[in-house]
Design a protein around this nucleic acid. Structure first.
Lengths: 327, 327
DNA sequence: GCGATTTATGATATCGCTAACACTGCTTTC
DNA sequence: GAAAGCAGTGTTAGCGATATCATAAATCGC
């Protein structure tokens, strides 16, 4: 920056101003400085800027895993919103573990991010404390059922479960199973199960099976889930899968085995992935606005950083049950 | 850090040592300092560290888009390797545009990353120059066909095209089409086409159609691609799709229309996605080691940063043609 | 036409850490 | 028993930017 200043015949302070608040500098000197910057290929050092100004223009994002399409698409949108505002995005994997999330928060805090976007509302006490002490804005996503620390952007997993229960019950089905992630890992899947369960209880019923798959899940696990359900109750009439990939592979497997969907077995997915309407029959599923979540979470962080919004906020997005052929 | 030092009764330098090179400090003072760190909830400031030591422990990753499964899985692995080495990962989207990549490189350089992982070998001149001047290690991925700046980790897209050509020709098929991304955007898809084309030319043939889809592609585009191929040549016998998602949706559409696969229409995908072996018939495809690419790219960056490797390197991973039912 | 503002620029003091060197006791070596 | 080596710790001087205040020049109101 000293070199640029010398070449432009100004002080470093003026160079700094041209770079971050050009409206304070006269047109003539601005042009001069910009020329010097270009000629010297000067690239500012953001660490020095952070040290002097205490704003990093970094947002930390913690998701369970980038391999899960949902989160990859969410992060994609987050980046699309934050990048134009010249924020960089730092990503970490919690692998569905609160402990790992805690460690990540701790290590991300060393970078003094201007915001955190977390997944879910379940965190360790230390994690909460660290975040609170740091004073960094936090947005929690994907969980509209529980209280958030400050801002939350999500949907009700519980409602999703109830909606699917409604659908199955409207067809008079009674032997209904659920396939999701491990109870101690996948809190949001649990909430979906609870919703389904509560709906069935209203009619004096209960799920005939609840299968817990190890995370992360692959499509193949859909067939495993199907088989485990049939092991527990061979007369099962309907299955709600916690992710479309599972449901699709189960549906294709039913086709292969000659099990008629939905007559013999009704299937419902969750997420509305790319291929959900390509199967035959097309997959009935719950459309989850994960890209909107990413967009709104990023916008909420920006609003908070720029002090446009001061109060805690809770944004709950509507879910849509897409009734297609499979249920 | 001053507070920690005071509380532990040492100098800040000793605190610094405990944090970054504890082997230089006696057990007794180390314990004392660690206690003070815990009690004060001290979190070091990485910007100050970077300013003083010129190492950021950041690796910048630029991919076309996180919405494409391939790149999401690659980045997933990159993070899994770099995080334990206490590097943070910064991600940007080029959206298949060299211009955008150039701008990203420029803005990432402000953070003084210790390494760059790029996608492909196609970059603007300025991008190359900036990277060269900065002296940051660069790994280029997914392109084993062209020369890299320094280290490359990828596979031959050209070879992939030839392999698929071999397969189709071994069945005596002559009317072969290709469906991929736009020629001016998707360089790696182009190389696959070139490989297929060169193989067909050996037998005096040429592709009957080359469909270019707008990026980013969704599964739905597979059906569009299929239709466009049939528009150009209704007698087409085989199609090579540049991504499994496209091929799967085309395959399911063929099932729906009563077109027999592979007898009337042979289909081959690329990538070996999760659902590729769940269809009926199962999808013949090229297995791409994208997770290995992520892992090796990250490892290569670490090796370079730690000066374990000094020479340019070119890692080319083998591809596997998975012959399943669809071709 | 003179004091009061406003606009544009500069000087100086940090921000929080680490590199480099200096120092203090010990132990080792022959 | 003196010289040399070593482990452990401290002192000092930056790293490259911005905040803050000071100053100079231009514009304003009446």
């Amino acid at each position: 920056m000293v070199d640029v200043a010398r070449r432009a015949g100004t002080s470093t302070q003026t160079v700094s101003r041209v770079l971050s608040r050009p409206e304070l500098v006269s047109e003539a000197t601005r042009v001069l400085v910009e020329k010097a910057v270009r000629e010297l290929n000067y690239i500012p050092n953001s660490a020095a800027r952070l040290l002097a100004s205490t704003t990093s223009r970094i947002v930390a994002v913690i998701i369970p895993s980038l391999s899960a399409t949902v989160y990859a698409r969410e992060v994609d949108q987050i980046i699309r919103v934050l990048e134009p505002a010249s924020f960089s995005v730092m990503i970490g994997h919690s692998d569905y573990s609160e402990r790992r999330e805690e460690r990540l928060i701790q290590s991300f805090l060393e970078r003094r991010p201007d915001g955190f976007i977390l997944t879910g509302t379940q965190h360790t006490d230390l994690a909460r404390e660290l975040l609170k002490n740091s004073g960094v804005p936090v947005v929690e996503t994907f969980d509209g059922d529980n209280d958030a620390m400050d801002i939350s952007v999500g949907f009700s997993n519980y409602e999703a479960g109830r909606k699917v229960g409604d659908l199955f019950r409207s067809r008079g089905l009674t032997r209904i199973a659920y396939v999701g992630g491990r109870i101690e890992q996948d809190f949001r899947s649990n909430a979906r199960f609870d919703g389904l369960d509560s709906r069935l209880r209203e009619d004096g019923l209960a799920p005939v099976a609840r299968i817990q798959l190890k995370l992360p899940m692959s499509a193949r696990d859909g067939v495993a889930g199907l088989d485990q359900v049939l092991d527990v109750d061979p007369l099962t009439q309907a299955i709600f899968f916690s992710a479309d990939a599972l449901a699709i592979s189960a549906l294709l497997e039913c086709n292969r085995r000659g099990v008629r969907v939905p007559e013999q077995m009704a299937l419902c997915g969750f997420g509305n992935y790319d291929l959900a309407d390509a199967t035959m029959p097309a997959l009935t599923t719950v459309a989850v606005p994960f890209e909107t979540i990413g967009e709104l979470a990023a916008t909420a962080i920006l609003d908070r950083i720029n002090d446009r919004v001061k109060e805690p906020r809770r944004i709950t997005l509507p879910l849509q049950l897409l009734r297609r052929g499979s249920a």
